[in-house]
Design a protein around this nucleic acid. Sequence first.
DNA 1: CGGCCTATTGAGACAGAGTCTCGATATGTG
DNA 2: CACATATCGAGACTCTGTCTCAATAGGCCG
Lengths: 150, 150
Amino acid sequence: MGDPTPILTALENAGFRLTEPRRALAELIVEQPGHFTAAELVAATRARRLGVGRATVFRTLEALERLKIVERIDLPSGEHAWVGCERAHHHHVVCSRCGRSSEIRDAGLLALVRDVAERTGYRVDDHRLELFGLCPACLASESGPVRATA
Amino acid sequence: MGDPTPILTALENAGFRLTEPRRALAELIVEQPGHFTAAELVAATRARRLGVGRATVFRTLEALERLKIVERIDLPSGEHAWVGCERAHHHHVVCSRCGRSSEIRDAGLLALVRDVAERTGYRVDDHRLELFGLCPACLASESGPVRATA
DNA sequence: CGGCCTATTGAGACAGAGTCTCGATATGTG
DNA sequence: CACATATCGAGACTCTGTCTCAATAGGCCG
């Protein structure tokens, strides 16, 4: 489905060693269609009998987050999840049903941030924007039975 | 500093009983200058020797969230925190230093959401926006020693 | 005012996330 | 090939949040 090579290259360039557990995790991550939790990754390594410890999964995710290969998002449920992503600053729309996510560019958000800064007097250093809803596919398969989510 | 009465009234109107623990928590909450974590609330009840159990704190926060008296936000650190808020839909700018927060109205966010929906084909049902930075006060007290945060 | 029904409580067990330590091991370099 | 060390796995540990259950207190009704 995906190619783990870019992840491994990025790790190597950043001075990390290319170890067996990291290769395994890179492959699992590119296979994820949407967002995934740390627990899911751990379960995946167990299912394939790769001997990857829980701590290693967390450590690797942390490294990948620092390299901006993966981004942590907060689901409405309160869970923490991760999505693979490109290296630019951006945000995600996450499908509440299938978990798939799409990146979105800063469509006007920058202006909004500036506006808020002006009106409140805050110096805004960081922001977090996440959108939730239904992706086109899930939307289509739902066409008949309409169900309001928000 | 704040008046807990509106909270209590809202609880009562929603059919909740006005119990001693709830009164105590309402007071503590209106005293919070900015966001606060569940753990901090628990610590506060202990500090004042109010006999409020941990479970009760969580249960009360949950009830208040449903009544939109309080809103849960996700700090960049990954912690969950809460802020008291008015009843309209809105977002917050949170000061990374003192924790104070200001509400912001949906300045252009709605348009942004619509734009994203159009471009990605998603039906966007829910969103979450949080801004982090320094409030005017902390900004002023920092004027000398400049420190980049992001 | 007193009693009753039941929502609510506190204590503590429990489940899960994430961190940390430590001795063992694998990696890339020289 | 050998070495210095980054990384590993196991498991202890901490912290958050949930749940159960017997005890209690709130508020309504007579």
